[in-house]
Design a binder for these strands. Structure first.
Lengths: 219, 219
DNA sequence: TAACTATTCAACTGATTAGTTGAATATTAA
DNA sequence: TTAATATTCAACTAATCAGTTGAATAGTTA
């Protein structure tokens, strides 16, 4: 093997990772799996793909070794194969945000909304969380909460928020978070809460942003 | 726009980055540009692609905003659009190394070779570099050296090594480095130097590994 | 001005890929 | 054992992509 053949082989191996990131649905699958392990059926429902197509995309992710699976009853549960995949998603999002202006415009429109909907940055929350007049709610599906959540958060999945309003002490300020800066659940939660007379704001972070923030503190 | 359309649009934007990483030649182009800005012609020569094809791949990278260019005389000089692209390449390589076993086997065979060829880790070099009986040589093309190099390194491009042996003080131990852990130049340099009676070893790092190492020290 | 150089564009071919549909497999529960 | 459920596989279509070739463009030098 000469130097050229070596380079070609090595770079082809690297593209196994790139190839898999070239489909929106596969990135969405990775993003979902970064929140918690999930069955094919759950992933198919969340991504609005057919089961067969979901399965095929998962095979592709498996082939690139970005995910692995185990069986539970007759479910196949997929999860990320390596925590670095979270870093990979982070880096891609961060470059996309800096280089592709449309992304921020879209996110501003759809997630951040206008000034009527209050946003709280993670750093601000870290300073305020001891203040005792805040409740932090995690509006993701229960399984994702159970797989890992912010310190002190209580779980009220967005679907159940309307029925479980009583879990939220009146008089407290509500801070809602979901999967991260591109997840719409927290926005929806804050809208609902505001309409019911709560003072609520959306935390601009998810579990991964929180973890990264706290890793940096220790470094 | 509903939530599904928003997700589809956002994830499609992210794939602009993924798509571009799905071709070995494009990753190689990014890797080369991470060492220094380069003209289309240089890139075409280094990657062994036709000029037209090189240009087309560069257009694709441009489209994803991973590179930008300026003109000098009648050359078009491309460079990375954002230093985070280096992080992106790092993360991909690091996941590939952990998840795809073949990569390490190949690298071991082709770059590290057997025990006859001494390898020095960056950390060891950091401890030894004050010792005064070492010369550090950068065997990359001159332009890459000029664009940024390790502290104290002298430039002797691999092509010119044989003619410029006199630049290396006899009696000193030689440490050679090139573009990074997948670059063959330092291996070739150490082989040549050993055959000429020098005591030489290959530094398992390039400029980016060095930068990352020193950023961590400060954090 | 003309000749030269570096780069890009346009048109084409062969290969790869996303998504669909329906059948096959494998595990569980009755 | 049989029926039910979850997942995968196989075959197909439409779309996209890498690389080639040759022509067009634009900037430089004489």
């Amino acid at each position: 093997m000469d130097a050229r053949a070596f380079k070609d082989t090595i770079y082809s191996e690297f593209t196994r990772i790139g190839k898999v990131l070239s489909s929106p649905k596969r990135i969405e699958l990775l993003d979902l799996l970064s929140q918690s392990p999930k069955s094919v059926e759950t992933l198919s429902r969340e991504t609005k793909m057919s089961i067969a197509n979901t399965s095929k995309h998962l095979q592709a992710l498996l082939d690139a070794r970005l995910v692995r699976y185990h069986k539970e009853k007759n479910f196949v549960i997929y999860q990320l194969a390596n925590p670095k995949v979270v870093d990979l998603l982070f880096t891609i999002k961060s470059i996309a945000e800096e280089q592709i202006a449309d992304i921020n415009i879209l996110r501003e429109e759809f997630i951040v909304r206008d000034d009527s909907l209050e946003t709280m940055e993670l750093e601000e929350w870290e300073n305020r969380k001891e203040e005792d007049n805040y409740v932090l709610i995690d509006v993701r599906p229960k399984a994702e909460y159970l797989s890992g959540h912010l310190e002190g958060a209580i779980s009220i999945p967005i679907d159940e928020l309307n029925e479980h309003l009583k879990k939220i002490p009146k008089g407290k300020e509500v801070v809602a978070y979901c999967r991260g800066p591109y997840c719409v659940y927290a926005t929806e939660a804050v809208e609902l809460l505001q309409s019911k007379g709560y003072h609520a704001s959306r935390l601009e972070a998810g579990i991964h942003e929180w973890n990264q923030f706290h890793e940096r503190q220790f470094h």
